[in-house]
């Protein structure tokens, strides 16, 4: 059992690889449908949510609270799926949303532009120039998103465990290599790994509760969880009423699975 995240450029064969892996390994598969479910939960349109994931933030939106809500919501939805310990995820930003988790094989699939253009022309009936332009635009927007949100280059191989190039390879070959990799000891879902995944889910649930609550949604708070104990760090304004701290604690404690809450927030004076 393991979790596989697949990152790729548009029309690089990511979905076909995900389907092949799910079939070979008997794992559930999850792709962009996670956006539909999350959008419904948040009461926004799927297009709005997708745009927040695919388009780079505008200058006036670089600290955008709304974008943070969407990203946290998708991460929380994904955490509910990964907790089982076996999943093939081929939706957006898996390499970031699952960063730092054990037993996750972060895969990137790359293919030359010419190959991707051909696929787009065949599947969507697009003209060559239009297909080329589409691929270039989508790639550029995703690269900008990653740069803005995480300060990284999307093509940096250090972000992934394995990068497979389809210039000479094929989807069945990529599928065979990834299948073999996740059967190795470092991707075994042990009890410790299961605990880490459960902790991740709880932290995501608390984070989601905080970013969707009107009193705390704009606060840059980080959450870590360990066996029901939740630690919240970050910074928040110190109001004379002392309400913010109480509210954070109240929201965190209301989340199912939280036994204890520790607040390690740096308070600052909003009216110096």
């Amino acid at each position: 059992m393991a979790i596989i995240s697949i990152c790729r450029g548009t029309k690089s064969g990511g979905q076909a690889l995900a389907e092949c892996l799910a079939e070979h390994l008997g794992y559930p598969i999850l792709g962009r449908e996670i956006l539909q479910v999350t959008a419904a939960d948040l009461g926004v349109s799927e297009q709005d949510l997708t745009r927040q994931f695919e388009r780079a933030p505008k200058l006036w939106d670089r600290q955008g609270a709304l974008r943070r809500v969407y990203v946290v919501a998708v991460q929380a939805a994904l955490a509910e799926h990964v907790v089982a310990g076996n999943l093939v995820y081929h939706g957006l930003a898996g390499q970031f949303l699952l960063r730092g988790l054990p037993a996750v094989l972060r895969t990137r699939l790359i293919a030359p532009v010419e190959l991707r253009v051909r696929v787009l022309m065949e599947t969507e009936g697009m003209a060559r120039d239009a297909a080329k332009r589409h691929i270039r635009d989508v790639d550029a927007a995703r690269a900008r998103w990653v740069k803005m949100m995480h300060g990284e280059r999307i093509e940096d191989p250090a972000l992934y465990d394995v990068v497979i190039n389809l210039t000479n390879g094929s989807i069945p070959a990529a599928c065979a290599v990834v299948t073999k990799a996740v059967q190795q000891p470092e991707f075994t879902v042990t009890n410790d790994v299961k605990t880490a995944l459960e902790n991740f889910r709880l932290a995501c649930r608390v984070k989601l509760a905080l970013v969707t609550a009107p009193d705390t949604r704009g606060l840059p708070l980080e959450v870590e969880a360990a066996s029901g104990v939740v630690e919240i760090s970050g910074s928040a304004p110190l109001l004379s009423s002392g309400e913010t701290g109480d509210r954070i604690a109240q929201i965190a404690r209301s989340v199912k699975g939280v036994r204890e809450m520790r607040l390690k927030v740096q308070w600052f004076d909003p009216y110096p």
Partner: peptide
């Protein structure tokens, strides 16, 4: 990465 067929990161892979 386009120069190679397979790039493996030894961060988590033995």
């Amino acid at each position: 990465t386009l120069l190679y067929d397979l790039t493996i990161n030894l961060r988590a892979i033995s």
